[in-house]
Design a protein around this nucleic acid. Structure first.
Lengths: 202, 202
DNA sequence: CAGAATTTTGCGGACTAGGCAAGTTTTCGC
DNA sequence: GCGAAAACTTGCCTAGTCCGCAAAATTCTG
């Protein structure tokens, strides 16, 4: 049971995330000031910095939530399940259920994700966020494969490779013309990764 | 034949890169101001920003050069060579020849690389740099495999996977205790990637 | 050597990030 | 319930960043 304090905090964080993304989409990244975001969310500019340490961080926050979500799902998959199956499920999870995943992406979805690479600082931040979950992911991989994520090389390697494969799928989805559904792309990327990238020319 | 102008520019860039890295290692990232770096390199603070748009960018610049180097090497490998062989050579190239690659890493090398993840903004910047060459890498992969790096998924996927595999090797090398040589680690990471991560428990 | 092209520099402005302390709001023990 | 304690918000303030602009300095071209 969550207290009022915690709920309010979450609401503020949410309002800031939403306002940041919204404003950036409307007017472009560099014409949005922290002050504007704070005002749109109904808090003082100083409070903004209690939640996020830059506007880029605020904009990338949904991204953060997605990667956390994947790590959580991987931990919750049945222990006996084969690694590759569990990983695929985990990476698909944050993208499932939204209409834009099985249908062609709407212009807003594309714009929001494209925003994440629209300026150098923004791109750096979203990459950072993307990899912030790799430790958790690696730990989950280690657990499943009986390796030691401190000593062994394998879990980190698999975790980061899985992250970028998913990311490559999303990027491809973003620019595909004509539009294609996302989930099969992610599945295909992970399948190829798990198969060791057989030479396509054969 | 390069003129004086171009040589001076390169020298300035080099001096700034070196000063930035040096100072950051000596006193820690957040006690180094742009002004300090500029002074150490013998230029005005304003000139610093003509070369780099943040101190993080200056510190990560050697990293940038390494990724460029790999992309260049991949392009220059003999066209008939198998993809995986060429890619491995390319990723090893920037690390070859320095003593610290075959011997245990010295404390300075470790410190310099560790610096790249020592603060959120620094980490974002180094990831950004790391992936900045992925387009070039993907193009080279596309050429070798007869795929189209615009239309097909494969080249981007391979390129980014190769980058993170190498990165995972470097990270593991950084923390390995007792110390191990780097080059075999990179080779092993790429081998595992190319083999589709066979389950190590078998 | 003169004029063009390029680079460096100082100045100034808009914005950011975060320490500190006072004011509010929520929680918790009694 | 109630009053102290804890947590959160806010305003103020400082140090620092990033970049546009235009003048000065440097290098290049013929």
């Amino acid at each position: 049971m969550t207290g009022l304090r915690e709920r309010k905090k979450q609401a503020t964080r949410d309002a800031l995330m939403t306002a940041a993304l919204q404003l950036a989409l409307e007017r472009g990244l560099d014409t949005v000031r922290v002050e504007d975001i704070a005002e749109a969310a109904g808090v003082s500019p100083r409070t903004f910095n209690n939640y996020f340490s830059s506007k880029y961080e605020a904009i990338a926050a949904r991204h953060t939530d997605r990667t956390r979500h994947s790590a959580q799902v991987l931990r919750d998959r049945p222990p006996g399940e084969p690694l590759w199956e569990a990983v695929t499920r985990a990476m698909l999870a944050p993208w499932e259920g939204a209409e834009q995943t099985t249908l062609p992406p709407g212009p807003e979805a594309r714009a929001a994700l494209r925003l994440l690479t629209s300026a150098p600082a923004m791109e750096g931040e979203s990459l950072r966020v993307l990899f912030s979950a790799d430790g958790e992911l690696a730990a989950a991989v280690a657990e499943r494969t009986g390796t030691d994520s401190e000593r062994d090389f394998y879990p980190q390697l698999v975790a980061t490779a899985v992250i970028v494969a998913t990311q490559a799928a999303v990027r491809h989805w973003l620019q595909a013309e004509p539009a294609v559904p996302l989930l099969p792309l992610i599945e295909e990327a992970l399948r190829q990764l798990g198969a060791g990238f057989p030479d396509p020319s054969i």
